[in-house]
């Protein structure tokens, strides 16, 4: 088929959206957490554990709904661990994130061995399939996009969240506990990121080791490129997904661009953007400071 015709097709757009779903959930979760003043480098761990929990729960119960719920719960659990280390004990937020990512990578492999005596793959489970309209996670992604925008700008919780990231001393003066606000944001953001993990494993009907393969880090880059605004972050995620989908098509069309280099395009783009507009980014002023 002609390359350009295949790019304009409905199937190609559906492929972009399907690829974007894990990024969208992770970037929405990450935006909320970072807006409350906590560096969210643990997105990779939330995706990976969400994917593992969703696949194992669906395999064990045969219910996709329970699997999706387990994915969200796993993301929230990682976030709970993150909050315990970074907020309760005051540990360095960046190192906690990296540590959790390494723990999730080894921990999911360990769990595969312990549960199924398998090195790399979980037993197959029911899948949400390739179609968008039949995929509950597609609708959840739309709901999460609208809800996180609305919650951030139109609710009391969102106001407190933004205050925790911008002027935490105002919350203190108003008698509101900053750590408590951040705890609630981390748990909600973690659950959202965990849903992204559920898409990773349930789309193919099974978990494989390191299935997130850097998507959590990429989602964090999307958050930064979007200047910490959830709706813009979703657009950046769609652009990343378009680059990935294009890469798959180009490989099918046997193009001359080296196939190993195309996946690096979003990373090069992010580097360019932070090089050119680096100082112009405006992170939440309290990001990464204190607990």
């Amino acid at each position: 088929m002609n390359l350009w015709a295949s790019l304009a097709s409905f199937g190609f757009i559906a492929a972009i959206v399907r690829i974007a779903i894990p990024y969208v959930f992770a970037a929405l979760g990450g935006s909320l957490v970072e807006r409350s003043g906590v560096i969210d480098l643990a997105l990779e761990a939330k995706l990976l554990c969400g994917a593992f929990a969703a696949a194992t729960a669906t395999h064990a119960t045969g219910s996709l709904a329970l699997g999706i719920g387990a994915g969200a719960a796993a993301g929230a659990s990682i976030a709970g661990l993150q909050a315990l280390c970074a907020l309760r004990f005051g540990a360095d937020q960046v190192v906690v994130g990296i540590g959790l990512n390494l723990l999730a990578l080894a921990g999911t492999r360990f769990a595969l061995q312990a549960l199924y005596s398998e090195g790399a793959n979980s037993p197959p489970c029911e899948s949400v399939g390739d179609g968008l309209v039949t995929n509950p996670l597609f609708y959840l992604a739309i709901i999460a996009t609208i809800a996180s925008w609305a919650a951030l700008s139109h609710t009391r919780w969102g106001l407190r969240l933004r205050a925790a990231g911008e002027r935490p001393e105002i919350l203190v003066a108003a008698g509101i506990s900053v750590p408590r606000v951040r705890w609630s944001v981390l748990l909600v953001g973690g659950a959202i990121a965990g849903l992204g993990g559920a898409q990773l494993s349930l789309a193919v009907g099974g978990f494989s080791a390191d299935t997130s393969s850097g998507r959590g880090y990429m989602a964090l880059a999307a958050v930064i490129l979007a200047n910490w605004r959830p709706p813009r972050a979703v657009l950046v995620c769609l652009a990343i997904a378009a680059a990935e989908a294009l890469n798959i098509r180009l490989q099918l069309a046997a193009s001359t661009i080296p196939r190993e280099l195309v996946p690096a395009l979003p990373y090069v783009l992010t580097l360019l953007v932070i090089t050119v507009w680096g100082a112009g980014r405006r992170p939440p002023p309290a990001l990464g400071h204190g607990n």
């Binding site: 880090y217 930064i224 190993e260 932070i274 090089t275």
Partner: peptide
């Protein structure tokens, strides 16, 4: 990038790690 452009080193590091891994794979294969 950090001191001249204000880019957080963790973000540029993540991007460079991924970029170098891709370049190494390409250089190796081709």
């Amino acid at each position: 990038l950090k001191v001249l452009r204000g880019a957080h080193e963790v973000i540029s590091s993540v991007m460079l790690n991924a970029l170098i891994a891709a370049v190494a794979l390409w250089a190796g294969n081709s």
